[in-house]
Design a protein around this nucleic acid. Structure first.
Lengths: 133, 133
DNA sequence: TTTGATGCAAATGTTTTGCATGCAA
DNA sequence: TTGCATGCAAAACATTTGCATCAAA
């Protein structure tokens, strides 16, 4: 059986993610943690991000981008992705679990849950587009 | 202005996707089309898949995998992904567009739509797990 | 003939991994 | 001292792209 050892780097990564609401990418985490641990490697960042995901401390978000994003807010919530600037924003929204029931009505397997994200224009992009027209 | 030329390869890729309901990956498309065009390259497959997506002939599905999947069913619909075997299945389900309204209630941007997928166990995996226990 | 599409290979971007060394317990 | 975690570099993947050639119009 294997135990888990404390690691300054992992702690730093976790703290950084908890301090942000903008769902950083692995590379953003790397750049940030490098301020404190200049010798940290990207491999270590990835290893720890995966570790934290597997232990339920953070979640991995896959939107429509080429790279993953990470979020220390592990409460059930939805995201909004701006189609203009790519920003990922947490939505204040009660989980719509009733759609799991709807999904299961004509389905012979078991629906255990869903993942969803919303898209459109964030407030900033909405306003800048209004100005232009 | 640039025009679009007919291409046997593109036609073959499109026809293959229309014949399947299992949402093939780029590599699966490559292997299939290679039966008819042994010299086709992966680059051409990707170029045509992107072309078809941009022209609205097919859609690109990003679930929780490392690679994208493609679907010639362009009608608005939801997918189910089996957490055991990874199968991607179309759900017979009326679009739940009212959740866009809910999402917009405490949000200052513009919600234009959503994407969602459901997960759980497909019928096959559900049954095989029952047998084991 | 013109120009978009192809095949090939090299390049890109993201993520993972092998291995010797470092550090927590 | 033990063995998990790290740093580094190489590898693994999925996808894209440059370029000479091919083929549709």
């Amino acid at each position: 059986m294997k135990s888990v050892k404390f690691s300054r780097q992992r702690e730093c990564i976790k703290n950084y993610l908890m301090s942000r609401k903008d769902h950083p990418t692995a590379d953003m985490v790397y750049e940030a943690v490098r301020q404190e641990y200049p010798n940290i490697s990207l491999g270590t960042v990835y290893r720890n991000l995966n570790f934290l995901v597997e232990h339920g401390d953070i979640i991995k978000i896959r939107c429509d981008e080429s790279c993953d994003r990470f979020d220390a807010n592990i409460s059930k919530h939805y995201h909004f992705i701006c189609r203009n600037c790519g920003r990922v924003i947490d939505l204040e929204m009660i989980p719509v679990d009733h759609i799991d029931v709807l999904a299961g009505e004509h389905f012979s397997g078991v629906i255990e849950g869903h993942q969803a994200f919303f898209y459109g224009l964030c407030e900033v992009c909405k306003n800048s587009q209004t100005e232009k027209s």
